[in-house]
Design a protein around this nucleic acid. Sequence first.
DNA 1: ATAATATTTGCACGATTGCGCGAATATGCA
DNA 2: TGCATATTCGCGCAATCGTGCAAATATTAT
Lengths: 113, 113
Amino acid sequence: MQDSPDIQQACSAALAARLDAGFFKALGDETRLTIVLRLATASGPMTVSEVGTCCGTHLSGVSRHLSFLERAGIVSSEKAGREVYYRLNHGVLAEQFTGLVAAFSACEQYCCC
Amino acid sequence: MQDSPDIQQACSAALAARLDAGFFKALGDETRLTIVLRLATASGPMTVSEVGTCCGTHLSGVSRHLSFLERAGIVSSEKAGREVYYRLNHGVLAEQFTGLVAAFSACEQYCCC
DNA sequence: ATAATATTTGCACGATTGCGCGAATATGCA
DNA sequence: TGCATATTCGCGCAATCGTGCAAATATTAT
């Protein structure tokens, strides 16, 4: 199989599948990035209140941000009693970013000049 | 040097430096992602008008999106006569994503349980 | 100089977003 | 049962965003 329109189509489709606006949108807010950073450097799962101490916003906003991040697959939650523990999905992030690198690289190699 | 608050601080700072909301915000819009995909699979630089054929929006909007992407470092422009040629900064994207993988991985290794 | 083409900019509109506040819900404890 | 704590939800507000349209600008061609 050599460089043909077929392989270019495949590269394009693979990259398109990786380009999820929701994922990037979730990371495109300062407060949410602060939360992500806090969770990334935590020694374990954190409650909403604990996360809330790192960013100056109201706790309801923190709860909403965490839900947003969870919907994007970036964090996971687990309910324990009246508290909800959030943790960062390191695996998802690593897989996404490495996948993006590979997809962009493939496009550059097979589609570009 | 072993796992100490110092190295945790270093990991946190390194990740914080990578977490640029503007960068993610630039990729957090469907139309801009369509433009990025188009440029990623192009055989060379493209004019604003050429890029515009891939997304249903008005040409002025395409111009604005390209400016946004350029401000985020994702694309570069070069003026040639009355046309402006845009191209994807593959290197920047690769460096950003690989850097993110490394920074998250370091945090997971040295800060987390 | 005049006309045609490519791009950018100003403007207004509708939609979305992040936020704080208070109420509602859920759970644990006395 | 009553009370305190943790989280979520509904509401409204201000700010931002994406868009189309028309005008302005820049450059090329006649």
